[in-house]
Design a protein around this nucleic acid. Structure first.
Lengths: 133, 133
DNA sequence: ATGCAACTTCAAGTCGACTTGAGGTCAAGG
DNA sequence: CCTTGACCTCAAGTCGACTTGAAGTTGCAT
């Protein structure tokens, strides 16, 4: 089982098509991968968890195969995450309050309405860019 | 311009199809919406920002049209956000370190490798369920 | 009266990351 | 030897939230 990697055959094939990994040969029909692929898969998983797309991750591998990771990019992603964390924190606090709020209806809770307004102003006007979940 | 709502015509139509909003009539071909729709749109935007899907949001409106928001659900979503925030924070710290790390290659940085292992173990074994970005 | 931007319809397309389906092949274990 | 089940190929499908395209209609300002 090549699947000691933890990812499914279809995913491996998909990654191979996308040139994120390469198989080293075949035994009959079955692909063979060398162990270095496990590192690459880990790197891919990490990249994904950090919020990079597969295409972005592909750029992190030089044509040679060894990782070429730009520290600026990492820092930029960290900043991005920081922003998202702050947004999510605000949202969490708002939800928490709304959940505990004693107002008869949520519409009567000032905190809830503040959240509403914030969400509405985020949508209106400026085209939002990938707020994502 | 019905678009004082800040959302595009196509989105309004899409929401109408999905029964998230309703138009109150027509003047010619053009839909007319009553002002309450603005509140609903704000609610939808808020729900989305909090990470609810449109289908989940649809359930928050009773058949009558007034919001029927379950406080338990809000609390649950807050907990979910909390978890995500912690994950993102760990990731951000790891990225930050990796960005500043003086090792010749990222592969030689212990922090980076710890991140790698964490990501790999997240992927392997258990089928991850919507870790999302 | 007329020009035109903003709306309308409906079907189909987009994006990302995979998965699924149908039909086929093959190496190893009993 | 033969079954089995893990793999293979290739095209197409999935999900969510919309957008786009093509072709047509309309309300409003001038």
């Amino acid at each position: 089982m090549v699947r000691r990697s933890g990812v499914s055959a279809s995913t491996l094939r998909f990654y191979e098509e996308k040139r994120l990994i390469a198989s080293t040969g075949r035994r009959g029909l079955h692909r063979l991968f060398d162990p270095g692929v496990l590192d690459r898969l880990a790197l891919i998983a990490l990249g994904q968890a950090a919020g990079f797309s597969l295409d972005e991750i592909a750029l992190m591998f030089g044509p040679g195969g060894r990782p070429r990771i730009d520290r600026h990019m990492l820092a930029a992603k960290a900043d991005e995450l920081d922003t998202k964390i702050r947004e999510l924190s605000a949202m969490r606090d708002g939800l928490r309050h709304a959940a505990a709020c004693p107002a008869r209806s949520h519409m009567e809770c000032p905190t809830f309405r503040r959240l509403l307004r914030a969400a509405a102003s985020g949508t209106a006007g400026a085209r939002r860019k990938k707020i994502a979940t």
